[in-house]
Amino acid sequence: DETGKFLVLALYDYQEKSPREVTMKKGDILTLLNSTNKDWWKVEVNGRQGFVPAAYVKFL
């Protein structure tokens, strides 16, 4: 149950560059965990948590 969690859509592919980031593919649906930083949002994708560039995702 994803109640209270926001979902975001990956607009572009992103390859993680550090262990704190996660890789996503364009079209992936991600669970948004934290968006307090304007540049990097914490998400969960494929069972992994990490950061992606905020400009690469949008709210569903």
Rank of each mutant, 00 (worst) to 15 (best):
T23L: 02
A55M: 11
R20T: 12
P19M: 09
D1L: 13
Y56I: 06
K58V: 15
K26P: 03
A54E: 03
V8Q: 01
V22M: 10
K38M: 09
F6R: 13
V45M: 13
P19S: 12
V52W: 01
G4W: 12
N46K: 10
K25A: 09
V57G: 01
F6V: 15
L7D: 04
R20S: 14
I29Y: 06
E21M: 05
Y14I: 01
A54N: 03
E44W: 06
F59T: 09
N34H: 07
L33A: 02
K38H: 11
V52N: 00
L30E: 00
L60Y: 13
P53D: 01
L7A: 06
L30A: 09
G27F: 04
L60M: 11
V43L: 03
D39S: 11
Q15Y: 15
V45S: 12
K25F: 11
V22A: 05
G27A: 03
E44A: 09
T31L: 15
G4M: 12
N46S: 09
L60W: 11
V43D: 00
R48D: 04
Y12W: 12
A10G: 03
F51D: 04
T3Y: 14
G4R: 13
E2F: 06
F6L: 13
V8K: 01
W41Q: 01
V43I: 08
R20M: 13
L32C: 08
L33M: 08
K17N: 11
T3S: 14
W41R: 02
K17W: 04
E2Y: 05
A54Q: 05
Y14R: 02
V57N: 00
Y56S: 10
G27N: 07
E21W: 04
K5G: 11
E21P: 04
T23N: 06
G50N: 01
S18H: 11
K25P: 00
K25H: 10
I29D: 01
K26H: 06
V52C: 03
Q49C: 09
G4E: 13
Y12L: 10
P53F: 03
M24F: 10
T36M: 11
F6S: 11
E16Y: 04
A10N: 01
G4H: 15
Y12Q: 13
K42C: 11
L32V: 12
Y56Q: 05
A54I: 03
T23V: 03
T3D: 13
A55I: 10
K17G: 09
K26C: 06
V43H: 00
V57T: 04
L11R: 07
W41S: 03
Q49V: 14
E16Q: 14
V45R: 13
A10S: 05
D28W: 10
W41M: 05
W40Y: 07
T31Y: 12
L32Q: 00
V57I: 10
W41V: 09
D1I: 14
E16L: 07
V45Q: 10
Q15M: 13
L9N: 02
T3A: 13
A54V: 05
E21Y: 05
V45T: 12
W41T: 04
M24T: 03
N37F: 08
G50W: 02
K58F: 10
N37L: 09
F6T: 14
A10C: 10
Y12V: 12
T31I: 15
D39N: 13
T23R: 05
D28A: 07
V57W: 01
Y14Q: 01
A54D: 00
D1C: 13
L30D: 00
L7C: 09
G4T: 14
W40A: 02
K26Q: 11
L33V: 12
G4N: 13
V45D: 03
W40T: 02
L30C: 10
L32I: 07
P53H: 02
E44L: 08
K25C: 08
Y14C: 02
Y56T: 07
V57K: 00
Q49K: 10
T31F: 13
V57E: 00
K58Q: 14
S35H: 10
K5L: 12
P19C: 08
T23A: 07
Y12D: 08
F59N: 08
F51Y: 15
S35P: 07
A10D: 00
E2N: 14
Q15H: 14
V22R: 02
P19Q: 10
V43Q: 00
E21A: 05
G27K: 02
E16W: 05
D13V: 02
D1P: 14
R20P: 05
E16H: 08
E44K: 07
D13H: 05
K42I: 13
L32F: 05
G27L: 03
L30T: 01
F59C: 13
I29W: 05
D13Q: 03
R20G: 15
S35E: 06
T31V: 15
V8E: 00
K42L: 15
V43M: 02
E44I: 08
V57R: 00
I29E: 04
F59S: 09
K25R: 14
L7G: 03
N37H: 13
S35D: 11
D39A: 11
N34G: 07
K5W: 10
K5D: 08
K38L: 09
G50K: 02
N34V: 07
E44Y: 07
D28I: 03
L9P: 00
V8L: 15
W41G: 00
L60N: 05
